[in-house]
Amino acid sequence: MPQLAFETFVPQLVWLTIVFGFLYLVLARVALPRVATVLEERRDRIADDLDQAEQFKRQTDEAIAAYERALAEARAHAHEIAQATRDRLNEETERQRKSIEARLAEKIGIAEKQIAATKEKALGNVRDVAIEVANAVVTELLGNADRAAAERAVDNELK
């Protein structure tokens, strides 16, 4: 069995030490730090990109929130304007209605006064006619008539 040829042990051990030691030095000092740098750069880059994406998302959210706030404000404002317009129109309508009513009431008052005057006048005529008629009827029946008595009798009846 060549594995038990003891005279080959020393050269194998010598070269194992040299080669393994050299390999260790090159890997530990040169190769592995380079790999570590590349991996770290990539990790940092990914983390940065994720951070940036997160930031963009936050900005988007903020923009959406601002838009919604503006929309709500605009709605409130529009509602306010509509309410104010409605109030103003109501007020004006009320005022016009009142002035028209006042005018109408005035006209009604004048008309009523005219009616009352006309009625009074008419009633005054009725009294004269009634006295005349009564006087004429009494004169026809009795030959003469007391005009004052006829006036009294008509006044009594008209009361």
Binding site: T8, V10, P11, Q12, V14, W15, L16, V19, F20
Partner: peptide, 14 residues
């Protein structure tokens, strides 16, 4: 005193 001969084993280690 050390035998450090370059053998076929050394070659394949290298």
């Amino acid at each position: 005193n050390i035998d450090a001969s370059f053998t076929n084993s050394s070659l394949f280690m290298v």
